[in-house]
């Protein structure tokens, strides 16, 4: 079975079933935004949502992650977590799945990161395809992440009364096989799916004023462009843009003693290139002084450096950095200004 169909009236039943199989995480409303949370009550799972405050990254690369237990006398170290639990991420947008693919590239580059890989191994991803824009901040059409491009176990598409489920892995198939109310998708279902996808082409339009090749070129030429001064002047260096990014993977490592002062835990904690001390070294030298240089660096880490290194853009078009920036620094405007040689609209 490659495509299955699930009637909407059976969705909650299926969610209960998924919950019985592994720990289930899904988007949930929080005030006027959304967050991924463990599903307690299946009614709370949201399938139509604006990208969550922080991406589901927190489940495979936690904000603060225990790495190692240690004692000083007698000296001993051990893995902080012996075994990880199985979990299912439900209703992940295609942009966030692209984020997972980016993280894979970064963390699988030698030397591989065992903590990341241990968690990833236990993860099942059930995606949901967006049929319209979440809001005006997204640039997923330019990044071509608005359509499913692999990296998931199951992908749901809402075709009205049913969800079509694309089965993309054996892991995924196990969650739909032998479930009485999930049937193989028929020819009629597939025809509706084609229609829905066709309609989508008229909704999603490239948000950048030119294609990605041109974007890449603009970054090649634009290191000294005045747009970086504009962005730097407005930035408060709060770090929001990097904290919410699905592809930012910088971290710091700290040892934390407990009150015995003889044993403790080693953690890694998310870090951000927007912080004042990020590129400071002993003696106080700072290799990336100034907010304009740090913002520029962030952009280059999405649109130029990873393309050279991994042949992959590290922007997923989710729009979180623009959404989270209270100074109104907007990714699409910045990239367009870099290409057009123009000034930012609200600069």
């Amino acid at each position: 079975m490659k495509y299955a169909a699930l009637k909407k009236e059976n969705l909650n039943k299926w969610l209960e079933y998924l919950k019985s199989k592994a720990r289930l995480y899904a988007p949930k409303k929080k005030e006027n935004q959304f967050v991924f949370r463990p599903v307690k009550n299946v009614d709370e799972a949201c399938l139509k949502y604006i990208p969550t405050v922080i991406p589901p990254k927190k489940y495979y690369f936690p904000q603060k992650e225990k790495l190692l237990k240690f004692t000083v006398e007698p000296f001993h170290t051990a893995k902080a977590i012996a075994e990880f639990e199985e979990f299912i991420l439900f209703a992940v947008h295609t942009c966030d799945i692209a984020g997972i693919q980016c993280m894979d590239v970064a963390f699988k580059e030698g030397p591989e990161d065992p903590n990341y890989l241990n968690r990833k191994e236990k993860m099942t991803i059930i995606g949901i395809e967006c049929l319209e824009y979440c809001d005006t901040h997204a640039n997923c059409a330019s990044m071509a992440t608005h359509v499913p491009r692999g990296g998931y176990d199951l992908m749901l598409v809402d075709i009205g009364e049913k969800f079509i489920i694309h089965i993309n892995s054996e892991k995924g198939e196990r969650l739909v096989r032998n479930v009485s109310y999930i049937k193989e998708a028929g020819a009629e279902d597939m025809a509706v799916l084609c229609f829905v996808r066709e309609k989508k082409k008229n909704i999603f339009k490239e948000e950048f004023s030119a294609g990605l090749d041109r974007v890449y070129q603009a970054f090649g030429d634009g290191f000294k462009h005045k747009v970086w001064q504009d962005v730097g002047r407005r930035c408060v260096a709060c770090g929001n843009c990097t904290m919410v990014c699905p592809t930012c993977y910088c971290f710091d490592v700290v040892d934390d003693m407990d009150l015995s002062l003889n044993s403790g835990l080693r953690y890694r904690i998310w870090n951000s290139c927007q912080m004042d001390d990020f590129a400071k070294v002993a003696g106080g030298e700072d290799f990336r002084k100034g907010r304009e240089n740090r913002q520029r660096h962030r952009y280059y880490r999405k649109f130029r450096y990873p393309v050279d290194k991994f042949n992959r853009y590290f922007c997923t078009g989710c729009g979180r950095c623009s959404r989270a920036c209270m100074a109104g620094i907007n990714l699409v405007e910045t990239v367009n200004a870099l290409m057009d040689g123009g000034k930012l609209n609200n600069a």
Partner: peptide, 26 residues
């Protein structure tokens, strides 16, 4: 030596500015 926003985002709070409140976190 970084802003409260960094910890606030890690805690996945809804930004106060989203709720039309001013906040000195940044």
């Amino acid at each position: 030596n970084y802003a409260v926003c960094v910890e606030c985002k890690m805690n996945e709070n809804v930004c106060r500015y989203e709720k039309d409140q001013e906040c000195l976190g940044p």
